[in-house]
Amino acid sequence: MKYDDASWHSGGNFPKDLPASAGAIHTGMFVAWALQSGLAGELHTDEMPENLEKLAGRSLTPGEFFLWACDGKFTDEDLNEEGNAFTASYFDFSNGSYLADYEALLGHGLPRGSDRLYYVADTWENFEKLKPRLDQRLADWRTHR
Rank of each mutant, 00 (worst) to 15 (best):
S89T: 03
S89E: 15
S89W: 03
Y90A: 00
Y90P: 01
Y90L: 02
Y90W: 11
F91E: 02
F91D: 05
F91A: 03
F91C: 03
D92G: 00
D92K: 13
D92Q: 04
D92T: 03
D92C: 09
F93T: 00
F93I: 05
F93C: 01
F93S: 13
S94C: 06
S94F: 05
S94K: 11
S94H: 11
S94P: 00
N95L: 00
G96I: 03
S97A: 09
S97F: 13
S97P: 02
Y98K: 09
Y98H: 02
Y98G: 03
Y98P: 08
Y98I: 02
Y98S: 02
Y98L: 00
L99A: 14
L99W: 08
L99I: 15
L99Q: 14
D101Q: 07
D101V: 15
D101S: 07
D101Y: 04
D101E: 13
D101T: 12
Y102W: 10
Y102P: 11
Y102D: 02
E103T: 06
E103D: 15
E103G: 12
A104Q: 14
L105D: 00
L105S: 00
L105Y: 01
L105R: 10
L106V: 03
L106W: 04
L106C: 08
L106N: 10
L106R: 03
L106Y: 05
G107S: 04
G107I: 13
G107F: 05
H108M: 12
H108T: 12
H108D: 14
H108E: 13
H108P: 01
H108W: 08
H108Y: 00
H108C: 09
G109C: 07
G109P: 06
L110R: 04
L110D: 04
L110S: 05
P111K: 08
P111A: 09
P111E: 06
P111N: 04
R112G: 11
R112V: 13
G113W: 06
G113Q: 06
G113L: 09
G113C: 05
G113K: 04
S114R: 11
S114L: 10
S114I: 05
D115W: 11
D115Y: 14
D115G: 14
D115C: 01
D115N: 08
R116L: 09
R116T: 08
Y118I: 04
Y118F: 15
Y118V: 06
Y119A: 10
Y119P: 00
Y119R: 13
Y119Q: 00
Y119L: 08
A121G: 07
A121Y: 04
A121I: 06
A121L: 14
D122F: 05
D122S: 14
D122R: 14
D122N: 15
T123C: 12
T123E: 11
T123Y: 07
T123P: 11
T123G: 14
T123M: 13
T123S: 15
W124E: 07
W124R: 07
W124N: 05
W124I: 09
W124A: 15
E125V: 08
E125W: 01
E125G: 05
E125N: 11
E125L: 13
E125Y: 06
N126K: 12
N126V: 13
F127Q: 06
F127R: 05
F127P: 01
F127Y: 15
E128A: 15
E128F: 06
E128W: 10
E128K: 11
K129D: 04
K129G: 00
